[in-house]
Design a protein around this nucleic acid. Structure first.
Lengths: 208, 208
DNA sequence: TTATTTTTTGGCCGTGCGGTCAGAAAAAAA
DNA sequence: TTTTTTTCTGACCGCACGGCCAAAAAATAA
């Protein structure tokens, strides 16, 4: 059996182990994006990777850990990208705009990953059937949006809406773009994001 | 076996059959709302109804038809309610407001049903694993929102946004309220809907 | 009542999947 | 090379669920 990957994590990862984990995660993303989470059995993922099913069980505690890994990777990637685009902006309006544009931009450039993520989001469950990912999963992202909004209010740029409700609404709007993109490949994302920016610029600014 | 419930549907429904179907559907909603769709096996639903599992198979072509029935009932109910609140309004702004308020109101008064619906929405799949309900399922509702928006533009009340993008955004906002309500039982829905109304009133109106 | 149809029962079956395991193979250490 | 550890294989297991069915029971018709 594997040594231990407890606590701080990757201290005892051999070269092969690291490579295999990465390969398996990558294959999992591909397979899920192609056939959907429900059909993405360990057998299929293993086949894609050209290895035996047991290898996955050997390197991962189970399917759960594998999927978790996939999601964490996607989250981290997207978060870093959006964050890099937002920071540096000076006005809250610019930050909000950057958040919207960067989010959608990330969706566009990571289409397959996002489709996989979307599917995992709704299909990945605990053993008792409860969703692994739900509203609470969004809280961190929601918090950063709220931060922007509060900043805008403090700076006198934004009107006095509930930052919580507005943050949820903004996040939902962005999710909407993702869902539409996934469902309608020909969707004009440029138009879409332009509309979102305009809408939320108007909706948040101080009334004159 | 059952006679036929083809095409137009309920011509040949006996008294018992009608009653049983209704009972089973009701029990399915209860069970799903309580334990979630994934755990809501036919066995459990039957147990709740105090009948044998086979009865469900006898009255429904399968689990699929049962769930479909549950959803159709919920959709029809909600649609009728919202529609009744919207029609009669004279201005587009009032219609939009009514749409928002009625939607959230319906969620509030049908909490259990809505939670079941939410779960089914993400968990109910075709045999090949593809979602039964997806973006396209929303098109009818989206169309009625778009109708309001277009009317507002024609009447000169609303600014010149993309009605499609705005409709999706509005729908997403309302869905957001539902998700938040499901996740946080203490959510202040009155505040929430007030904020939504204000936000979209501002976001849609013609700039002065 | 008897005959016929509808409805219900409860157990059985197939299926598909994640997980496991003993042993083979490969890699690393001695 | 020999020994030891890591990695991999491929078959097998158990479980849970939806579906099925033959026969019982209940309702209805004759």
């Amino acid at each position: 059996m594997r040594s231990e990957k407890n606590s701080s994590g990757q201290e005892g990862r051999s070269f092969i182990e690291t490579a295999r984990r990465a390969q398996i995660v990558a294959c999992a993303i591909e397979v899920i994006a192609e056939v959907g989470y429900a059909q993405a059995s360990l057998a299929l993922i293993a086949k894609r990777a050209g290895i035996s099913k047991g290898v996955i069980s050997y390197h991962f505690r189970g399917k759960d850990e594998l999927i978790q890994q996939v999601m964490e990777e996607a989250f981290a990637l997207g978060d870093a990208f959006v964050r890099s685009r937002v920071e540096g902006r000076t006005t809250a309006a610019a930050m909000l705009r950057a958040y919207l544009e960067a989010s959608v931009e990330f969706y566009r450039t990571h289409r397959a990953h996002m489709i996989a993520l979307l599917d995992i989001w709704s299909a990945f469950r605990h053993e008792d059937g409860r969703p692994r990912f739900d509203a609470t999963t969004n809280e961190p992202e929601l918090a950063s949006v709220e931060e922007i909004l509060r900043f805008g209010q403090l700076a006198g740029e934004f009107r006095g809406f509930s930052t919580r409700v507005m943050a949820v609404t903004v996040k939902q709007a962005v999710d909407g773009a993702l869902v539409q993109m996934a469902a309608y490949p020909d969707l004009d994302l440029d138009l879409y994001v332009r509309e979102l920016v305009e809408t939320f610029t108007i909706a948040t600014r101080k009334e004159r």
